[in-house]
């Protein structure tokens, strides 16, 4: 057994292609990014001068857009954690209790938005929230809230919350499915025992389901924070960071710096800080969120 499992050639054949792929798409670009982040180059292959930590200094000390991007990510992440996840947990519990054909049908419906491409979702919501013919404003007219009518994504005060709404709409099914599968893993006899002890309803779930779900919750909260930090496509395709910097995110910011503003060195400095922020965020949430399997 030992001999078969320490077959050097097999280990090499199993691991090398994967590591090579990883090195090509993750490590090499990071090294290159790190190098470019100390230069003032306009694009790869153009003339460059080494400027030391200038880009980083500028970013951390004078770039309010960078900090705004981080703040937006934190707000979005808190939005996910406070608004989306409790509802997902509640729905997962209710869905599990529903049983039968209805359980399956609702589960299917809730997941449909998850299989639709981000391009369609973004363009669709851009139209839904359109001030002149969008459905959202028409619905407000119908329920008599015409005064609430709004250019939802075009107004600095509502752009971020509208974006959060779009992302919750499209991501709800994923969250629900993860909690739902967590609940399916809780053995039924625990509930029966609790019933015998007189627990029921909300109390039963608060005392049993939620604590037993805590490993799933820990992973999901970490993922929610990372998803918020990494937010890019939906923003890029709807508001492109605007209006002003109301929906600015690091991914969008560095993409525009590199490809539209031609500040390639600067964009790479953002990329390096972006990676560091993501790793630190993962580390912190793994550290401070109690999880039984950690």
């Amino acid at each position: 057994m030992q001999k078969v499992l320490s077959n050097k050639l097999a280990i090499f054949l199993f691991v090398f292609p994967g590591i090579l792929l990883f090195a090509l798409t993750f490590l090499a670009p990071i090294v290159l990014s790190f190098y470019y982040s100390f230069t003032d180059t306009l694009g790869p292959g153009t003339k460059l001068t080494m400027i030391g930590f200038e880009n980083y200094k500028q970013l951390l000390l004078h770039d309010s857009r960078f900090w705004r991007s981080l703040l937006n990510a934190v707000l979005l992440g808190l939005g996910f954690i406070i608004l989306q996840h409790p509802v997902c947990i509640l729905f997962a519990i209710l869905l599990d209790r529903l049983g039968g054909k209805a359980e399956k049908i609702f589960r299917t419906i809730f997941f449909i938005p998850c299989v639709i491409s981000v391009v369609v979702i973004s363009r669709m919501w851009l139209n839904l929230m359109d001030p002149s013919f969008g459905m959202v404003n028409k619905l407000l007219d119908i329920v008599g809230l015409s005064s609430w009518k709004h250019a939802w994504l075009g107004d600095t005060s509502t752009a971020l919350i509208s974006l959060l709404f779009i992302l919750i709409w499209s991501g709800f099914g994923w969250g629900l499915l993860f909690y739902y599968s967590g609940i399916k893993g809780i053995p039924e006899d625990l509930y029966e025992a609790a019933h015998l002890d007189g627990a029921s309803g909300i109390k039963l779930h608060w005392k049993i389901t939620v604590p037993l779900l805590s490993p799933v919750i820990a992973v999901q909260v970490t993922l929610a924070m990372i998803t918020a930090l990494k937010q890019m496509e939906t923003v890029f395709l709807t508001t492109n960071g605007g209006p002003g910097d109301a929906t600015q995110f690091l991914g969008v910011y560095l993409y525009n710096k590199a490809f539209s503003a031609s500040q390639y060195g600067y964009a790479n400095a953002i990329a390096i800080l972006f990676i560091i922020v993501c790793l630190v965020a993962t580390y912190l949430s793994n550290r401070f969120i109690p999880s039984e399997n950690a």
Partner: peptide
């Protein structure tokens, strides 16, 4: 190596997009 591969879940692809284009 396992930890290195798992880093790939956390590293944002948008950050590696620009240098990757050059590579």
């Amino acid at each position: 190596f396992f930890s290195i591969i798992l880093l790939g879940i956390m590293i944002p692809i948008h950050a590696t997009l620009i240098p990757n284009f050059a590579i």
